[in-house]
Amino acid sequence: MSEQSDRGPLPIPLPPVGEGEVVSPAGDAKKIRIATCSLAGCFGCHMSLLDIDERLFGLIKLVEFDRTPLTDIKHCGPCDVGIVEGGVCNAENVHVLKEFRNTCKVLVAIGACAINGGVPAMRNNIDLWECFQEVYQYEGGLDGGQVPNDPELPLPFDKVHPIYEVVRVDYFLPGCPPSGDAIWKFLTDLLNGREPKLDYEMLHFD
C-alpha cells in the first residue's frame, strides 16, 4: 500500500467548533464543506475516518466540517459533500437523511449499514415487538422493565433499510468499516476531481 505524499506534517489549529455559521471565516470561502452523520450505525465509520490520523491536518486545509458529530452542529448548511454512515431504522433517520440530500451536492454512503442495512438489518427477520420485549423486558436483570414509549423517541421502522432505498446516493464506500486508507483514497480522489476508485485490497464488505 503506497504512502500518500500529501500527508501534512504541520499541525494547524482546528477551526472553532460548535458555533454554527461562525465556523466559516471569510478566508475559508473556497474550502470544500463536508457534513457527516451516523444514522443506524455504530460510529465505527467515523472512528475509521479519524484513522486517517495526521492526514487530518492536510485534510483540514482543504475542507471545512459543517454538521458532524465532530463539530456538534445540529443542522446542515449548504455543503459540497455529505457522508452518511448507518442505515435507516426510524423516522428521525429519514428526516436527517433528507436534510443531507437536500443540502449536500454529493451524497456518499459509507459503510455496510448505509449500503445494505448491515448488522442492524439482522433484526429485519424478527418481529419488532418481540425484539423490543426481548431487549427491554425478558433480558435478565430487568425486573419491571418496560418498552420505552416517550413521545420524543423517534418512531422505529419494522425493517432497517440502506439509505439508497430512501434517497439518491452518488457514491458508495463499502466496508465495516472501510479502512482509514480507503477513506483517504476516496476523499482525495473526490477532492481532486477524480472519479473515486478503490484498489482491490481496499474494497471489502466486512
Binding site: 445494505n116 442495512g117 438489518a121 425493517k159 433499510h161 440502506p162 458508495f172 474494497l203
Partner: peptide, 11 residues
C-alpha cells in the same frame, strides 16, 4: 467492482 447492491432488498 460492486460498490452497492443497487436494488431494493427483499430481506
Amino acid at each position: 467492482g460492486m460498490m452497492s447492491p443497487h436494488y431494493n432488498h427483499f430481506y
